[in-house]
């Protein structure tokens, strides 16, 4: 396996009920490819949280996953409102989710902390009014 395997998804910002589909698809493919459970778990948690954030906070976006020899790179791009204070957003329990979103089970303020915890590196590039790009790596 020399060529990296790439996945691309357009993540719909309107549809809360199909949220998580891209993550579930990637998880199934990684399992078929025979990656170990701990790697699959890390990628699943990190990508799911990022995918959901694009849906609930940024009207959707795009996800690109690159499975290389030594690492899996997850890039999530959106043209949403951006994150004004990244340090605050990274704190456990901080959430701006509205009540209708909380009623679905979101809004614990644990998504970004989970993404950090379950990946080997995470970089947030964000600008208010422009959008957010999050790059995460899981080492193999």
């Amino acid at each position: 396996m020399n060529e990296p395997i790439r996945f691309h998804f357009d993540v719909d910002g309107e549809n809360f009920s199909s949220a998580g589909e891209a993550s579930v698809t990637v998880k199934k493919r990684l399992r078929q490819l025979g990656y170990p459970p701990d790697v699959i778990r890390k990628v699943s948690v990190a990508m799911y949280e990022g995918e959901i954030n694009m849906v609930i906070h940024a009207h959707g976006g795009e996800a690109d996953i690159e499975v290389g020899k030594s690492e899996i790179v997850i890039i999530l791009r959106d043209k949403g409102p951006g994150i004004a204070n990244v340090d605050l957003a990274m704190q456990e329990g901080y959430s701006t989710a509205r009540d209708n979103i909380r009623a679905l089970g979101f809004g614990a303020g644990m998504g970004l902390p989970n993404m950090k915890k379950y990946t080997d590196s995470m970089h947030i590039d964000t600008e208010v009014g422009v959008g957010t790009t999050i790059t995460m790596k899981v080492l193999l």
Binding site: A19, G105, F106, A108
Partner: peptide
Amino acid sequence: DLLSRAMSRLQADDLWITIMTNTNVVAV
């Protein structure tokens, strides 16, 4: 019932008790 807490705490082969009923439960 909080999905991002469940996402981080649930382990393979667990029984997950919840009162959440939307599709996001299935994804998690």
